[in-house]
Structures are given as C-alpha cells and as structure tokens.
Design a binder for these strands. Structure first.
Length: 309
DNA sequence: CGCATTTGACCCGC
DNA sequence: GCGGGTCAAATGCG
C-alpha cells in the first residue's frame, strides 16, 4: 500500500478528496433545499464524477501518457561538441512577445486545471511582484504550445493576473482516458465508500487537514508544480462509479485552499484539502499526502486499483 | 540517480 | 540600451 504513494497515487488521492469535498457540499445543498442553491448541484455532481474519473484516468495513464511524460522530461544534456556550447544557434521562441495573449484572467487562484511547469521567474520593473513563467508540462512530450504568465496583482494582493499564450493541445478531452480506451481497458466499477471511518473517528486527534499556512505567510512553491489536470468540458460519462455513501462531516476546521473555499458555498460544510499554492497552481503534497493518504485510504479500497495495473 | 526548480545569462523586440 | 522572455547549468530534493 505504501508503494501507492506515488505521483499517480497522489493525484488519485487528491482527486478523490476533491470529489469527496464536492460530495459534501452537494449534500449540504440538498439538505438546505434552497431552490437557488440547486443551480450548483449539477455542477458539483459533475465535479465529483470528473474527479473520480480523473482518478481512474491517472491510474490508467500511469503506464501510458504519464509514463511517457515522465520519461521524456529529461533535460537535454550539455552539448557534446564544444563548438555548439560556445554559441547558441537555437533561436529563442517568444510565445508572448509579439504574439497576442490568448486570454488574460484575474483570479484569486492560479489554478486552471492544467499541468504547468515553471521555467522562469523575473522581476518586473514597476511591479512589486515577480512574474512567473510557466509552460505546459507536455510541451516536450507532445509539443503543447501553451504557456502562461502568473503575476500577483499589485492592486489586489489576493488576485493573480494570469496571461495565457497558445492553446493546449495536450488536454483536449482526457488523453489518459483515451490512452486507456486505446488499450481497450474496461473501466470496471468500483466502490468509493466515503462512509468508512466516521467523522468522529477521522477527526479524533485533531484535524489531519490543517492548513499548511502556519504563519510564515509565504507559501513556498513545492518541488513539483504539477497541478491536477482537470480540463474543462471533460465528460465523465464512461465512469462507472458507485458512491455508496457520502457523509457530510466536519473533517476539518475550514477550507484550506481557495479551491476548497470556492467549493464550499455553504459555511456549514467544511471541506478538507491540501494547501494550495496559487502562484504555482500546486497542492502542497508533502503535507497533504503524508497527513491524508491514510485518511483517504479509508475511503478507497486501493486493492481495487490493482485492476488497472 | 533522476527529476523539477532555481537563477544567472543570453536573446530579442521596442 | 533597456526591459522582458527564455534557456540551460547548477542545485537540491526524494
């Protein structure tokens, strides 16, 4: 089981947790019964399905797309011929300068569902905050040209100005699922039992979901800038999932991330989540996985995932 | 050891 | 020449 704490397993963990968060909010909405709140129910349900679907996809893709991605990330070694190292024959491509931005957004979080890899940071004159440069993690794998720049707004420190360049060619649809489909792997039904381990049980010795923001006020960028890829418009229709029981329980004290806060439209619902680093679109996996993987494993019989390996 | 991140240097457009 | 975007060696972590 410990061997499952891999990047793929981490992704699965987070996805399922997010699914559970959404489920908790969903139930709160249902209990509230306010008609105006029902507007979000379908969206939440879609989120749940999508998260769980992604969890499956992550496992399906581990030997496929994800493995390919990992394998080809190796940096080009220094030029073997000294002459080449003397000069820089390669012209540098400028994705942003000269070309227009695909879109510019101001958001409270840099999360956008895609996997980005930071490749630079620059202090910008007349700007208090550095600009961070990201490219799609699949740039070198499948040549996804998407890049983005993230800069904290000087006007509103809670906002991040995100400028996108280029369109993603990597996450149109779910390539992991597609890879699984190519292999004709059947999505077998499995059970996520959110009820195993009651709230009281899981929240005994303090909250395992403590916000990592414990005072230094500055979230470091985690080692991995892999955000969970949750592209918009994903369909979870092939998902064969049985959620046997969902309990809305107070697992944590408060949402630990903007994303969780967004999900948690009801103040009565406490959603647990890893700490989110808005600048790098990263979950703080170190704290999250260690503290919660065991917890998450209560919900999931990971033995079922052996089916996909 | 392999990987992602950091960061100084290089390159390019204005 | 300057400012900003990108590269890639160095670094450090798992």
């Amino acid at each position: 089981m410990a061997a499952l704490v891999t990047p793929a397993a981490s992704v699965v963990s987070e996805l399922v947790v997010r699914g559970r968060e959404s489920a908790a909010v969903l139930e709160a909405l249902l209990q509230g019964g306010s008609p105006q709140e029902h507007g979000g129910i379908r969206e939440l349900a879609a989120e749940i399905l999508l998260c769980c679907d992604r969890a499956l996809a992550a496992l399906h893709g581990r030997d496929g797309v994800h493995a390919v991605a990992l394998a080809s990330r190796k940096r080009r070694s220094s030029e073997p011929d000294g002459a080449a190292s003397q000069t820089r024959p390669k012209r540098r491509m400028r994705a942003s300068s000269g070309s227009t931005a695909t879109r510019v957004e101001k958001r409270s979080t840099a999360e956008d569902g895609h996997i980005w890899r930071k490749y630079g940071q620059k202090e910008i004159t007349h700007s208090k905050h550095p600009r961070l440069y990201f490219r799609c993690s699949y740039k070198h794998d499948i040549g996804c040209p998407a890049t983005r720049q993230v800069q904290q707004s000087d006007d509103d420190l809670s906002l991040y100005v995100i400028t996108y360049f280029g369109d993603h060619t990597c996450c149109h649809g779910d390539e992991a699922v597609a890879a699984a489909e190519e292999k004709d792997v059947k999505m077998q039904p499995f059970v996520i039992n959110f009820g195993i381990g009651s709230a009281t049980e899981s929240s005994t010795s303090g909250s395992p979901w403590q916000n990592s923001d414990d005072g230094d006020g500055r979230s470091e960028i985690p080692r991995s800038s892999h955000a969970v890829c949750l592209p918009e418009g994903g369909e979870a229709d092939e998902l064969r999932l049985k959620v046997t029981k969902v309990e809305t329980t107070s697992l944590g004290s408060q949402p630990a991330s903007p994303a969780a806060a967004e999900l948690s439209s009801s103040p009565d619902v406490s959603c647990a989540s890893p700490a989110w680093d808005p600048l790098s679109s990263c979950w703080e996996w170190d704290q999250f996985v260690e503290s919660s993987f065991d917890f998450v494993s209560r919900f999931i019989d990971f033995d079922d995932f052996a089916l996909y390996q």
